[in-house]
Every structure is written in structure tokens, then in C-alpha cells.
């Protein structure tokens, strides 16, 4: 299989995720876009692992092990992220990211 397919898939997911992170107002939707970006990274890791294995062999399965770690970290991220969103909601009664601008000049 040509390596370009999974890599393009990852690039597409990542770019779409960036668009979502930058343009969505609702913090939960921003989190969902972050999930897309994380998924893109995982796809890239797995694909790279296979490319490397094809070329020189990879007894350590580095890419897949890292992909697993990223999955775990992603799950932790969602947990903490949603907790922060809940806190935001409790303090401001909405979860619009662009309203949370207390730190501006």
C-alpha cells in the first residue's frame, strides 16, 4: 500500500481539527476538534511505524507503543478539559471560548 494514503488522512484530520479549534465558540466543540487533532497524530504514528518497519524492521513497535500512550493521554486530556469547561460554565453561565477574555489588556 502506498504510504501516502494514511499520511494524507492524518493531514486532513489535523487541518480540519485546527479549523475547528480556531473557529468554534462552544468550548465542548473546541474539545471535540482537539480530539480530531489527536486522532490525526495517532494515525501518523501508526503509519510511520509501518513505514519504518517496512524499511528496516522495528522490533520495538515504537510507533504503536507511542500511539497507545497518546490514546491514554488523550483520554486524560478530555477528562481534565471537560472539568475545566464545567468550571467555566459554573462561573460564567456559558461556555463560549471567545467570551472568556478576562486576561486581555
Amino acid at each position: 500500500m502506498a504510504a501516502i494514503y494514511p499520511l494524507t488522512f492524518a493531514a486532513l484530520l489535523f487541518s480540519v481539527g485546527v479549523y475547528g479549534v480556531l473557529s468554534r465558540r462552544n468550548a465542548v466543540l473546541v474539545l471535540m476538534s482537539v480530539e480530531l487533532m489527536i486522532a490525526a497524530v495517532v494515525v501518523n504514528l501508526v503509519a510511520m511505524n509501518e513505514i519504518v518497519a517496512t524499511q528496516m524492521g522495528d522490533p520495538l513497535l515504537t510507533g504503536q507503543a507511542f500511539a497507545l500512550f497518546v490514546l491514554g493521554i488523550g483520554a486524560a486530556e478530555v477528562g481534565v478539559g471537560l472539568a475545566i469547561v464545567l468550571l467555566l460554565y459554573r462561573n460564567r453561565a456559558n461556555v463560549n471560548v471567545d467570551d472568556a477574555e478576562l486576561m486581555k489588556y
Partner: peptide
């Protein structure tokens, strides 16, 4: 956001094609 995302996609795809355009993956099962 749209401009950034499109530029990013173009960049990533361009880099992927330039770097891995000819690579193939020998499928195996882990």
C-alpha cells in the same frame, strides 16, 4: 481559521508527498 487550516493542509500534504511520495508499506499484522 479557514485560511490557516487550508495552508496547513497544503503544507502537510506537500511535505508528505515530497518525503514519502514513493514509500510503500508492506502490510503485516501486529
Amino acid at each position: 481559521a479557514a485560511i490557516v487550516a487550508v495552508a496547513l493542509f497544503a503544507l502537510l500534504t506537500g511535505l508528505n508527498v515530497a518525503s514519502f511520495g514513493g514509500e510503500t508499506i508492506e502490510l503485516r499484522t501486529t
